[in-house]
Every structure is written in C-alpha cells, then in structure tokens.
Nucleic acid binder design. Structure first.
Lengths: 236, 236
DNA sequence: CACCGCCGAATCCTATAGGATCTTCGAACA
DNA sequence: TGTTCGAAGATCCTATAGGATTCGGCGGTG
C-alpha cells in the first residue's frame, strides 16, 4: 500500500495467537460456560477455523490467569468455581492491592480527580439504569454488564494512577477472578445504592487533599462489599 | 514396562513443554545471558533436540513472568535490565506484599516459628560463609548463590504462612524480577550482617505473639534493604 | 556522499501428519 | 448382577513442512 505510512506509532502488531486468546477470553468472561467444561484444542481450532498451534499458545497464556486449568495429557478445562476460602482470600488480596494503590495515588494529580469523577458519573448512571429496570421487575443482562464494567473501571482509575506497573499487573490477574466472582456469588441484585454512595465518598476523600483519607475510604468500601457479598451468599 | 505401577499417587505428570520451560528458566536465572539477547525458537529447539512447538509454549509461559519480551513476527528476547523507576516500583510492590503477608501470618502457628527459625539458621550460616570468603578476598559465586537462595527462602516462609494463594502467586511473579535485580543492582558485596540481624528481629517479633510487631519488623527490614540497595547503586 | 529500492537468507508463524495417551463403550466372566 | 477386560474412538502431544515477514547487504540514483 502506502510505501511509508506517515504515522505508524502506536499500531500494535498482533499475531493470530492473540486474536484466539481474546476470543476464548470473552467466551469465558461471557459466563455462558460451566466450570469443568472441556476446552478441546482441536474443537476450538475447528470452531475458529485455525490450526491447533495458536489455540495451544492462547490456552497456555490463559492458564496463568487462573481461568482455565490444565492437566498434562488430559487437556484444558474451565476452572472450577471459587470456593468460600478462595473467595475470602480474593477479598483480602484485593483489599491489600487497592488500599495500597489509593495511598500511592494520593498526591492527586489533576487528571486523577477528573478521571475519577468521570468514572463515578458513568457508574452512577449505570446504577440508576439497573435500579430502574429492577423496580420495573426486569433484569436486563446488558444493563448489569454495563454496571459491572463501570464499577471495574472506577477501581481501575485508582490503580492506573498508582504509578506502579506491578500493582497494575497484579490487578489484571485478579480482575479475571473478580469477574467470575461477580457472575457467580451475587448473580442477581447488586447493591447499587450503597456502592454508588461509597464511591462518592472515595472521590470526596481524594478531593480533600489529605493523604490518609482515600485509603480509609477505600478500605471501608471494600470491607462493606465483602460483607454484603457474604450476606448475599448466605441468603442466596 | 510395568503394566500398572503399584503407587502412582503424587507423581506429577509433566509434558515436554514443562521441561523445556524449566531449562530456559534456569538459563535465564543463571545470569549468563545479556538482556536483549535473541531467543530464537528454532535455535533453542535444536539445542534441546526438540521440535519448535513445545519451545514456543514454554516461551509463552515465560512471557508472563516478565523475564522475556515478545514482539509479534520478530521473536522473543531476554527482557531489558530494570530501570531505576522499575526498581522503585518493585520495592514498593514487595513492601506491600510482605508486610501484608506478615500481618496475615501473625497468629503464629507453631510450625511458622519452626520454619522461620530453620530458614533463619540457614540464612545466617550462608551469611557467615560469604563473609568468611569475602574476608579472605575471595568471592565464590556458589556461596553467594546459596546466600541469595537462603534469603529468598526466609521471605517465602512468611508468604507461605500467609494462607493466601493469591499473595503467593504474586510473590512468585515478583520473584523472578527480584532475582534479576539481585544479580544486577548489587552484584558484588551484599549486606550480610545487617540482613541477618534484621531477619533475627523478624523472628523475634513473630515469637513475641503480638500482631503488629512482625509487620513493623518486616517493614523496617525492607525499607533498610531498599536504602542499602540504592546506596550501593549510587556508589557502584 | 546520502538515500532509496531490491533481493536473499534467516526467522517467525501457521498448517498438516503421525505416534502416544486417555476415555468410553460393550462383551465376557465370576 | 456386578466387575473386569479389551478394543475403538477421540484427544492430546510432538514432529515436520511450507507460506509470510523481517533483516541484512548490494547496487543504482540524485
């Protein structure tokens, strides 16, 4: 085509392996597959109309996220559901990660507050939509998906502004597990009002300019989420 | 061979892919390769006398650890050296991980203290050996390697007893980077005496039975390690 | 002298084939 | 009837082959 394209910065060359990886990932995160389901290499290869080799590489990549498990000579399977103990450990790990990130992001750059307010706005909007649909007796999967995405985005803002790539990397690893947890543990009605209010408190804490306040706000929020999740699980 | 081997419990079936992974890993951790070195798939395959497929899978697995980098259609390379900023972030992440783990492991089971004392004994012994060789004007790579291994093992004890698999998983990821940092940043003389003394303080803190004391001791230790490393880097 | 296009070797990437292993199903036997 | 053995099918695992891309060097041109 054009001999030397004027701007070629930022275009990320992706092999076929990465596309396969994304397809399987969205399949897993979509939630339509039961834990324990076999992920046959040849089957996936036929479905996606590729050879087994890139599928194999994509599965190796997914294995590290904990979404799939592998047994030598027996193949890959969708990872089993998170048990109560794993759930508790996941909450603890998340608490550690996000409170630390909040502390690191405290020297609030002007962009942090802007990003945070934007994310909070999106989250609140999605919350209203979900609550409205719920009041009408309807549960729209698309709305709840958007709500969860907005929630994740809000927390990601803090992690992004922590300025620590290893924390981001850890959060990315936990993110997949968190997504699964949301789909299983509290599959029905989320705690919209409380979450929005607590997110508001977090934004206010960052806006206050104090260093410790955001950490405490984040701590309280996550502890509350944990309690509400456990209560939900006990009742459901 | 034997139609049905009598005891087959506990033996972990490993494919060829895992062996290749280990070989490349020990090559990287051995430190004999310069950052930026190309890791040609076909070359490795010929060296290990296997086909490219398992080599490819092993490299995908290693990519997640950050030890190797990949560029689509251009191949794999040994990851570049850690820059000053990455080093600082690595210290922060480690500080978060290990202090949290110390706090979680505080309800000291009897085995924790035993493991900790055993690891401390090994660490102190290796420290003496290194110091002795250093006094004689010799630097034995085997001794320093054993010293670093003992140090890593000591910290691993705390993480193991945190009872949180996600913390362990994160530590495993950071472990490879830490290993590289040790080999580059402070390549010469480690701070044996201070480290041994601080480890002793950590053991004593756990033995005290108090909950907060181990966290503080670990915090002080890691902060000191950070300072000493920076000073070393500034002078070296 | 610098710059551009071209060509070949090397390498990566994907596809295909065959051997090894696991799983399943059915029949024979206690 | 329950259990064990065996064979067929499917699947995983490794090896090999061929197309696609990149990198190096070479000659031509302004």
């Amino acid at each position: 085509m054009s001999p030397t394209s004027s701007l070629r910065g930022g275009i990320e060359r992706r092999g076929l392996r990465d596309h396969v990886h994304d397809r399987i990932l969205e399949l897993l995160l979509g939630g339509g597959v039961e834990p324990g389901t076999r992920l046959g290499i040849d089957t996936i290869a036929r479905d996606l109309d590729v050879s087994p080799t890139p599928v194999r590489e994509a599965l190796v990549q997914l294995e590290r996220t904990g979404l799939v498990t592998r047994e030598a000579l027996k193949g890959y399977r969708v990872a089993p559901r998170l048990g109560p103990d794993q759930l508790a450990e996941l909450f603890d790990a998340r608490l550690m990660l996000e409170t630390t990130a909040a502390g690191m992001a405290s020297p609030a750059s002007s962009t942090l507050l802007a990003d945070l307010r934007r994310a909070q706005h999106r989250h609140a909007g999605a919350g209203e939509a979900v609550a409205g649909a719920l009041a009408a007796g309807r549960v729209d999967p698309a709305l709840t998906a958007e709500y969860f995405a907005a929630d994740t985005a809000f927390h990601d803002v803090v992690l992004q502004h922590s300025g620590n790539r290893y924390l981001r990397q850890m959060s990315e690893t936990l993110g997949a597990q968190l997504h699964r947890m949301r789909q299983t543990a509290l599959r029905g009605v989320p705690d919209v009002e409380e979450a929005v209010a607590e997110h508001d408190a977090i934004v206010a804490a960052f806006a206050s300019g104090d260093l410790q306040t955001p950490v405490d706000a984040m701590h309280r929020h996550l502890q509350n989420v944990r309690e509400r999740s456990l209560r939900e699980e006990r009742n459901g």
